[in-house]
Design a protein around this nucleic acid. Structure first.
Length: 472
RNA sequence: GGUCCCUUCGUCUAUCGGUUAGGACAUCUGGUUUUCAACCAGGAAAGAGGGGUUCGAUUCCCCUAGGGACUACCA
């Protein structure tokens, strides 16, 4: 193990949004760098200019920002280092580690098929040819040496390949542009990357890249190839499963810290601990805890973990995250009065919401406008014999309570007293009052409802209900 | 087809040769209760199969089965 200060990097290709697997890879790199006081770099792998888009780049950047994965140093665009990549390819050409291959597309396909049938890696007929150069288009291929290649992966363990199983991969395309395989090793080297933590779909690439790195005489980084995430059915992740952009999770009501916690724990463990604050996550994260087998996405658990984080968030932070959802439920800007209600109900809202969407549902009763529309099943308690009279009587009692004394405790005392005085069960008054105040929407303990609603709104809603007899 | 990797409750995992195989989510039962939740208590639930090695295998080795990754002038 190296003692150097680690430099990790996340290197997405901008061909789509930041999906959940990429987000986890980024998180691991981020956590590892933070844990060891190193740097976390971000590099956009846009060597495939045809498939790369600015929209995708922006989506990835936005996703990273929402998830709170801030990177160190400048953002690197791989395409901007093309000259440097070409230079390295030329160096390899010069020292015999690469050669020009003049095979046409058709010839290549035929040769490939042939070697595949023979169970061998493809070898270009030009790899040992000393033939004079001609003007035909050519690609530059890396010349894989004989022997074996071994890496000690921090997650996968020791892996060994026979070099003869590796293709002579293309370094420079016929149009002179560098390929990913060349660009990564050059950029990682130039950026001083010490630890490469990435999806295990790159495991074999680590072997190929190591040979190239050694051909250049550079330091080989430490590798950690983490298993890919699978869908709930164990199959490859698809959009249907949740291979969605980070923004999709935000829209489903997940908070960044909750998603981070879930992602970190998916395929990584640290004893029996399930919930981590950000500080705890940085403190605890290590490569040893990463499991070698792919894990499946479990939305139930994701929601549970998210709920835990909603509870841990401070009110202001939570309100900010929840605002879009509350505005949606409200059908417009909240305004001061409703914002005040939400704020005072925060402690009740938190444990009742696993996602911000649920929080919107839980808060709905606070966002209703007078007079409430109380219909169907919700109106049933109000239709009961004497219900409106009881409400009217209770309203009178509540009116005696000054605004400054309007607290859950005081309200509870009045309710208890009212029940005792009238010699009735709590349900007798509780149910119609709840109906009058919430119109059947989800709501917490009654005294909490009255507290959050405030004196004026409570009295108003109760008066509305007792004034009008739903039976006609 | 070839190369490499993986396999403990439904799911995520603990176990680093000797455990009543532990925890979490989900599920079930009960409690609490003025709605819906939340919460509390309890229950059910696992070593893919077959061979070895060993006094003893979930743990080490091999085979089989199943799953995955890679096999581009994509990344």
């Amino acid at each position: 193990m190296s003692q150097k200060t680690p430099v990790t990097r996340f290197a997405p290709s901008p061909t789509g949004f930041l999906h959940i697997g990429g987000a986890r890879t980024a998180l691991f790199n981020y956590l590892y760098a933070k844990r060891h006081g190193g740097a976390f770099r971000l590099r956009v792998e846009d060597t495939d200019r045809a498939r790369s888009t600015d929209v995708a780049t922006q989506a990835i950047l936005d996703g990273m920002e929402w998830l709170g994965l801030s990177y160190d140093g400048d953002l690197v665009y791989q395409s901007q280092n093309a000259d440097r990549h070409v230079e390295v390819a030329q160096t390899m050409l010069g020292n015999g580690h690469a050669y020009k291959c003049y095979l046409t597309t058709e010839e290549l396909a035929a040769a490939r098929e042939k070697s595949r049938d023979a169970g061998q890696a493809f070898r270009s007929p030009f790899r040992d040819s000393k033939a004079a150069q001609n003007s035909e288009p050519y690609v530059i291929r890396f010349k894989v040496p004989t022997g074996q290649t071994k890496i000690s992966d921090q997650v996968q363990g020791d892996i060994k390949w026979e070099n003869e199983d590796f293709d002579d991969l293309v370094l420079l395309r016929a149009d002179g542009t560098p390929t990913y395989m060349l660009a990564v090793i050059v950029d990682d080297h130039d950026m001083g990357v010490t630890h490469i933590i990435r999806g295990d779909d790159h495991l074999i690439n680590a072997g190929r890249q190591k040979i190239m790195i050694e051909a250049m005489g550079w330091d080989v980084p430490d590798y950690a190839h983490v298993p890919l995430i699978h869908g709930p059915d164990g199959k490859k992740l698809s959009k249907r499963h949740g291979a969605l952009g980070a923004d999709a999770y935000r829209d489903m009501g997940y908070v960044a810290s909750g998603l981070r916690n879930y992602l970190m724990k998916l395929g990584w463990s640290h004893g029996d601990q399930e919930i981590f604050t950000d500080a705890e996550a940085v403190e605890a994260f290590n490569l040893e805890g990463i499991v070698k087998s792919p894990a499946r996405l479990d939305f139930d658990k994701m929601a549970y973990v998210n709920g835990q984080h909603i509870q841990m968030m401070d009110d202001a932070e939570l309100l900010k995250a929840a605002l879009p959802f509350l505005t949606e439920v409200n059908g417009g800007e909240l305004g001061d009065a409703k914002t005040a209600r939400i704020t005072s109900a925060m402690d009740e809202l938190k444990p009742r919401s696993k996602t911000l969407i649920e929080m919107g549902e839980q808060a709905q009763y606070l966002l209703l406008n007078r007079p409430l529309e109380i219909t169907g099943k919700a109106a049933k308690p109000l239709r009961r014999e004497g219900a409106t009279d009881l409400i009217a009587a209770l309203t009178l009692k509540l009116k005696a309570l000054e605004d400054t004394d309007w607290s859950a405790d005081a309200i509870q005392m009045i309710l208890d007293q009212f029940v005792a005085d009238n010699d009735i069960g709590f349900g007798k008054i509780g149910q119609p009052v709840r109906a009058a105040l919430t119109a059947g929407h989800k709501s917490p303990d009654l005294s909490q409802v009255l507290t959050a609603l405030g004196r004026e709104e409570t009295l108003g809603r109760l008066t509305d209900a007792s004034a009008h007899n739903p039976e006609g």
